[in-house]
Design a protein around this nucleic acid. Structure first.
Lengths: 156, 156
DNA sequence: CCCAATCGCGTTACAATATATCATCGGAGC
DNA sequence: GCTCCGATGATATATTGTAACGCGATTGGG
């Protein structure tokens, strides 16, 4: 079972944790990066880079190009501040950037809502299967497309 | 451990199995679909829809539009003749279209080579985790990005 | 036989996602 | 001040994916 002793950050605290994490890696926490992080964190579901660019542009009152957002999102993913949801071509902020986990995304095909689960035993099994096939340095991508409980009830 | 009692089809046999499977579903096996299937099966790694379109065009000696390829690939995925590799925006032919499996792809970031593993116990665990979170009708996407043994050895 | 309905496919246009390239700007260190 | 370098801007382009509409072949009913 997944056990999380760490804190789930929100709002200011999340932003602070992100800044700290990034600067610890020797990277700068610039206004631009803060704006992109805030924009990403403001979504309650995975957002495409273009969605983030639009939200950040609105918040900043000036145009922020998608291409800058891509650069920064890539940096964030590398620093564990954000995750990419491969099957949705989208990104989510990582609520606990200080811990490394393989994570499992459950994505509702109906409403887009995405929940994030950690199961270290499960991801260990997957890494093990990969290792047995001769694969190294694996980065598991575990995503489940389906229908969330809420949509299930409302749609029958 | 994954046990496969079914046959792995190749070449003609694979094509026949695909045709049979598709017609069993009440769909037609047209020349166009055969061409797309052959083109897809001719790749030894995941191929984008555009790659398939190009290969099919070459094989047929006439232009086959990507758009048609998308339609047909979607049909194939629905009929279990092909799989989509989400993290690569690409498709692979399914070598045993008659059995339903959640499958695990191991994708080499270096050479693109992709191996396919079935582990019913593992996918059952993932489905179980999804069910516990209230998700239904799940379609697991399990992919592992890493480096294959061969690239590992040659690149250090 | 003819008509209508359906299906597969073509064609064009377009939207969404992602990367490449080069210019510029501004701070850190000398 | 000057230089270097990382961050960002601007522009262009590549790649991936959909939408809309029409044509032609097939099929089933009259």
């Amino acid at each position: 079972m997944a056990r999380h002793d760490h804190r789930l950050h929100e709002g200011e605290a999340l932003r602070d944790a992100a800044r700290e994490r990034l600067t610890d890696q020797g990277e700068q926490w610039t206004g631009m990066r803060a704006a992109v992080f805030d924009a990403l964190a403001s979504f309650d579901k995975p957002a495409s880079a273009y969605d983030v660019a639009e939200a950040a542009s609105k918040a900043e009152g000036r145009r922020i190009a998608a291409n800058s957002v891509y650069r920064i999102l890539d940096l964030f993913v590398g620093a564990n501040l954000a995750r990419r949801v491969e099957s949705a071509n989208a990104y989510v902020a990582n609520k606990h950037p200080e811990c490394l986990h393989d994570c499992i995304f459950l994505i509702c095909d109906s409403c887009g809502q995405t929940v994030h689960v950690d199961d270290d035993a499960l991801s260990a099994s997957i890494r093990k299967a990969a290792a047995e096939a001769g694969f190294s340095a694996p980065r598991p991508v575990i995503e489940v497309r389906g229908t969330c409980g809420e949509c299930e009830r409302s749609a029958g």
